[in-house]
Computed example of a mutant assay.
Amino acid sequence: MKKALLVILIPFLVSCGASSLKNAEKPLFEVLTQQADGGASIRFFEILTEPNEIKMLENDESLKHKINPNDIQNSNFIVLNMGEKPSGGYQIGIESVTETDKNIIVTIKETVPKTDNMNSQSFTNPFCVVKINSKKEIVIK
């Protein structure tokens, strides 16, 4: 009797677990790193779509474990550099990402420190690296 019950329950339990894993979708974007310092000294946004460009990210110690071989074929990446800033408190990141039939629209958010806040007086270079889980054309706003 117990064996018959197990034979009936096991396929049911296994099929329920497998279907929930298959239905899990990746988010449209993932922020891989967002740093207050360490970026370039000039302001620029770069979209990486080609495998050789994306491979360069794997040379970075903090990013190489966040990128897998499937990402190179199925995702695009964006590097956002705010440029050199005169103090701490600046930040660059993503405000929103929207997918249309033709492209992915990425809206950038730049944060500047309030004048009444005490921030570090050293120069900083804020940057952000974002993975877009799509190979559609990217439009940055």
Rank of each mutant, 00 (worst) to 15 (best):
I47Y: 06
K22T: 10
I78H: 01
G88P: 01
K85G: 04
N70Y: 06
T98W: 00
I8S: 12
N52C: 04
E30W: 06
T49Y: 10
N68D: 09
E61S: 13
V7T: 11
G17D: 06
E95H: 14
I72S: 00
C16Y: 11
F77N: 02
K64R: 14
L63P: 02
L5A: 08
L9G: 05
A24W: 07
Q35N: 12
E58I: 12
L5T: 08
Y90I: 01
E95V: 04
Q34I: 08
K66I: 01
N76F: 00
E46S: 14
H65W: 03
E50F: 11
S19L: 15
S19H: 11
E61M: 12
N81P: 05
K85S: 03
M56V: 14
I54K: 02
F45L: 05
G88E: 01
K26N: 07
D60R: 14
S41M: 05
A4E: 15
L63A: 03
N52G: 03
L9H: 05
V14E: 08
D71W: 03
G93C: 03
N68C: 05
I42M: 06
E46K: 15
T98M: 11
L21H: 08
L6E: 09
G89W: 10
I54D: 00
A36T: 07
P86D: 10
S19T: 15
L28F: 04
I10G: 04
S41R: 13
L13G: 08
L13M: 12
L80M: 12
S75I: 00
V14P: 01
L6V: 06
L80C: 01
V14G: 06
S75Q: 00
L13K: 07
N76E: 01
I42P: 00
F44G: 02
F77I: 05
E50Q: 15
V97N: 07
V14A: 14
F44L: 14
S20H: 10
A40K: 09
